[in-house]
Lab assay of single mutants.
Amino acid sequence: RKEMTAACTPRRRIINLTSVLSLQEEINEQGHEVLREMLHNHSFVGCVNPQWALAQHQTKLYLLNTTKLSEELFYQILIYDFANFGVLRLSEPAPLFDLAMLALDSPESGWTEEDGPKEGLAEYIVEFLKKKAEMLADYFSLEIDEEGNLIGLPLLIDNYVPPLEGLPIFILRLATEVNWDEEKECFESLSKECAMFYSIRKQYISEESTLSGQQSEVPGSIPNSWKWTVEHIVYKALRSHILPPKHFTEDGNILQLANLPDLYKVFERC
């Protein structure tokens, strides 16, 4: 597991931080080997919608929660590849102030007048994250320049770009939802926020969305749709870069829909 690298990086740093090793061990302890084997050997059937997909393993048909699986995938990559990410360069710098204002204007932020003026909160978020810029760049390849612009994001899987519609809320939550006081809790909560931002979430995906850094293989055609990215990038990574937690067998994120021999018997009677 320590050699797990989802995106190509030129050289690998050895990380011996106790906090990170502890988080890696927790993933191992909570892992479910049968689910790992199923995901490793599954045959992708198709997307139901951005949140759900169908896959077959041996004779069984499964309904998989793409949102939760991708979130767990990105969390584990962030923990196992800690401080070893490439950088996704933004085509132009994104001012943190503008991103924070967009987030505060969104109902998702939960902002009320009692929280104070949005401009003041946005300025605080910019200054707060600028103070964390060195650590964010060093460990997470999340790059913020001296003017308070976001200029780079971590490359977690080759050819995958997170849904940038979720970027404003991500920046807001970096400042408000991460435990910045304790090292282990900081790395864990920061990785979880980043994983949620990178995950496939239906509120940020339309039929026209593209999450891939590449064009489709047909010359002159439109960019790959999110469905292509889910199948050929995300579920491909799920084959080798995730140890599913045991609770996925109990919380409805992986559901067995049918045993195909039983279905064949039904059709034979028709």
Rank of each mutant, 00 (worst) to 15 (best):
Q76E: 03
N28A: 12
L96N: 01
L155P: 00
R173G: 04
E127Q: 08
L121S: 06
A53E: 00
L142K: 00
S43Y: 14
K132R: 09
I222L: 14
S206Y: 12
R89Q: 15
Y80A: 15
N49R: 02
N49L: 03
K184L: 12
I169M: 13
M135G: 03
G110D: 14
D98Q: 09
V126S: 09
F44S: 02
F170C: 02
K60N: 10
R269C: 06
I171Y: 00
G252S: 15
Y160I: 01
G148Q: 13
E113D: 10
L23Q: 02
Y75M: 01
T210E: 09
T210C: 09
T9Q: 09
F97R: 14
V20D: 02
G110P: 12
L61N: 05
E72A: 13
I200Y: 06
F248Y: 06
P117K: 12
I169T: 13
H232K: 06
S221M: 15
C47I: 14
L88Q: 15
C270H: 14
D181T: 08
A7K: 04
L155G: 06
K68M: 10
S141T: 11
A55I: 09
L121A: 07
R173P: 01
E72K: 04
L121P: 06
L21M: 11
D138K: 05
S109M: 09
I157T: 02
F44M: 04
H42L: 11
E113V: 11
P261W: 05
V126M: 10
N259D: 14
V218Y: 13
P163L: 10
F85N: 04
H57W: 06
K184E: 07
E182Y: 11
Y62V: 08
W228P: 02
E146F: 10
L129Q: 02
Y139K: 04
S19W: 03
I79Y: 00
F187K: 01
G31Y: 12
T229N: 06
M196Y: 12
I144E: 00
D138V: 05
V266T: 15
P162F: 01
N159G: 06
C194I: 14
H241Y: 13
Y80L: 10
N253E: 15
V34Q: 11
P154D: 01
D251K: 07
Y198W: 04
L156S: 00
E134K: 10
V34M: 10
P219Y: 09
G86Y: 08
V234D: 01
Q203T: 15
E123R: 09
E119M: 07
D145I: 02
L211F: 13
G220Y: 13
F82I: 06
F128M: 14
L21T: 04
L61K: 04
L99C: 10
A83V: 01
P95L: 09
D158E: 15
I15M: 07
L172K: 10
N16W: 07
E3K: 04
F85S: 04
N49C: 12
R89T: 15
L39S: 04
N224G: 14
H42A: 12
K246E: 14
D115C: 06
L64D: 00
E72V: 06
M135E: 03
E143N: 08
E114C: 08
T9M: 14
P10M: 07
V48Y: 05
N16E: 11
E29F: 12
C186H: 02
L102D: 13
D138T: 05
E147T: 11
F85P: 03
H241G: 05
L69R: 00
P223E: 15
N16R: 09
Y62H: 03
G166S: 05
D105G: 13
Q215G: 15
A175I: 15
L54Y: 04
R173H: 07
I15K: 04
S189Q: 10
G148N: 14
L69D: 00
V234N: 00
L211P: 09
L96W: 02
D262R: 12
G31P: 02
T5F: 04
L88R: 14
V34F: 15
P223M: 15
P168D: 04
V45I: 14
V20P: 03
E147C: 13
E29W: 07
G116R: 06
R12V: 14
I157R: 02
Q51K: 08
W52A: 03
P163Q: 08
L129N: 02
I200E: 01
E217L: 14
P107S: 12
K236A: 10
G220R: 15
R269D: 13
Y235K: 00
E183G: 04
I200G: 01
G116A: 08
E114M: 09
S225V: 10
N259M: 06
Q76C: 01
I205R: 03
L190A: 05
E147S: 07
I254R: 02
L69I: 06
V178F: 02
N49H: 04
S141N: 09
E217G: 14
I157Y: 03
P93T: 07
A6I: 05
T5I: 05
N224A: 14
Q24L: 08
E71T: 06
Q56H: 15
V126Y: 05
I254E: 01
S225N: 14
D115G: 09
E26W: 04
M38C: 07
L153S: 01
R11V: 12
Y264R: 14
D181S: 12
E3L: 11
F187I: 11
L243P: 01
W52H: 04
L211N: 14
Q58C: 15
R269V: 05
I125H: 12
P245C: 03
G46N: 15
K227A: 05
I15L: 06
Y75V: 02
Y80F: 13
M135F: 05
H247N: 13
L172R: 06
R36K: 14
H247I: 08
M101G: 04
I15R: 04
L64W: 04
P245H: 03
H40F: 12
E147A: 08
G120E: 10
A6S: 05
L243E: 11
L17E: 06
V178M: 03
L104R: 02
S189A: 11
P95N: 14
A175R: 04
L63K: 04
E217D: 13
I169L: 13
R36Y: 07
L104I: 09
L88V: 13
K265W: 10
K227D: 04
P219L: 09
C194T: 12
M38N: 01
R12I: 15
K236G: 10
L174G: 00
C186P: 03
G152N: 06
H232G: 03
Q76L: 01
L17Q: 05
D262V: 06
S191E: 01
V87G: 10
C186S: 03
T210I: 07
F97S: 11
T112Y: 07
L150A: 02
L167F: 00
L21G: 06
L129F: 13
S206R: 14
Y160L: 02
G116P: 07
S91L: 12
E72C: 13
L23P: 00
E185S: 10
P163C: 10
S240C: 12
S91P: 14
K192F: 06
I200T: 04
T18S: 10
I242C: 15
S106R: 08
I27G: 01
R13C: 06
D105P: 03
L69Y: 02
E25K: 09
N28M: 12
K227N: 06
I205Q: 04
K130G: 08
V266M: 14
R239T: 03
S189R: 08
E250S: 11
L54W: 03
L142R: 01
R269K: 08
